[in-house]
């Protein structure tokens, strides 16, 4: 009989319930203002729109758990979508393979620069973001000339209903990948190490862990998650453009922070991020419903991040 089987902390589950409460509250409030929202099709659409953000935030979660951040994830997402659409004439599978290769390449550069050369993750990924913008801006007219629409099958996968409402293909994809990520973080050696280096990289090194390898893997997985999210965004909007995923960058960070993952690393989980994603998605529906301006939306985003980060920081200081 293991004395240590259950290592989930009471604090974490408490904050998860609090987030769940906020989500339900927001949902009911929105339904009260717009009764249509309280219907299965509306929930289905909301969930399918939440899926891409959920995937980008998934990548952001594992980076932040290691104490890093990936601000190039939106451009990775857009880039993957771009490559898939350009390569689509040679078959969807080939196109997806190219997209994956691109993600692995960019993720590797980010991860190795952070892990081996001790680059500040913020600057590295901001710089990578600028490089990618440049590469694709040039690419549109030169080496990446071609189709700017997603293959039909991917458009379906990004929008169509799965069996019946409120289930949709993007939701299924999100659920499957999210489940895999939860498994990775909670049940695998790599997951343990992601938490370990985020909490204390020095301790991990002393225990014989090659920290750079973990960081490399983290940024590659993050890029792949971003890429999948990007393909879904591309499929939902029909055509791809360089600025495709830009509106997702800051929300991807916001969803993780709302979900209780510390930007200093080592604490948090993807369950929180999923709730953070849903809260942001419902919130943006609510704000659209009451015809609030972009201004109010931005201010509310900012206030939420600040308040929650402050609360989490006080909780961890007092314990």
């Amino acid at each position: 009989m293991s004395t240590l089987k259950n290592f989930a902390t009471v604090k974490v589950s408490k904050s998860i319930w609090a987030l769940f409460g906020i989500l339900i509250g927001l949902f009911l409030l929105t339904s009260f203002i717009d009764p249509y929202f309280f219907s299965i099709p509306a929930v289905g659409v909301t969930l399918s729109l939440a899926a891409p953000l959920g995937l980008l935030a998934a990548g952001q979660t594992i980076c932040m758990l290691t104490g890093g951040i990936d601000l190039s994830i939106a451009m990775i997402a857009a880039g993957a979508a771009f490559i898939v659409s350009v390569k689509s004439p040679s078959g969807t599978a080939t196109a997806l393979l190219w997209g994956a290769l691109f993600c692995i390449l960019v993720g590797s550069i980010n991860g190795l620069a952070v892990g081996l050369f001790g680059m500040n993750p913020l600057i590295m990924t901001l710089g990578m973001n600028a490089v990618l913008i440049g590469v694709f801006t040039v690419g549109v007219t030169t080496f990446l000339k071609g189709s700017s629409s997603m293959p039909e099958i991917l458009v379906t996968a990004s929008n169509a209903t799965f069996l019946f409402d409120p289930f949709s293909w993007p939701l299924v994809i999100w659920a499957v990948i999210g489940g895999m990520l939860l498994f990775l973080l909670n049940k695998t050696g790599l997951g343990r190490l992601i938490y370990a280096i985020g909490d204390n990289a020095q301790a991990a090194r002393l225990a014989g862990v090659k920290v750079w390898q973990v960081q490399w893997a983290t940024y590659v997985i993050c890029a792949l998650l971003g890429g999948i999210g990007g393909v879904l965004i591309g499929g939902q909007s029909g055509a791809v453009a360089i600025s495709l995923a830009n509106p997702f960058l800051l929300p991807s960070v916001a969803a993780v922070v709302i979900g209780g993952t510390s930007i200093m690393g080592g604490i948090g989980n993807y369950t929180g991020t999923i709730l953070g994603t849903l809260i942001l998605t419902v919130l943006s529906y609510l704000l659209a419903t009451i015809n609030s301006s972009e201004a109010v939306k931005q201010m509310i985003y900012g206030a939420i991040i600040l308040t929650l980060a402050w609360t989490y920081s006080k909780i961890s200081q007092n314990s």
């Binding site: 240590l4 790599l190 938490y195 370990a196 204390n200 020095q202 301790a203 080592g266």
Partner: peptide
Amino acid sequence: SALMPQRSIRENLALTRF
């Protein structure tokens, strides 16, 4: 410098296994 303060006893003990 040897411990992961926010993680469980179990994770700290098992760290070198990974």
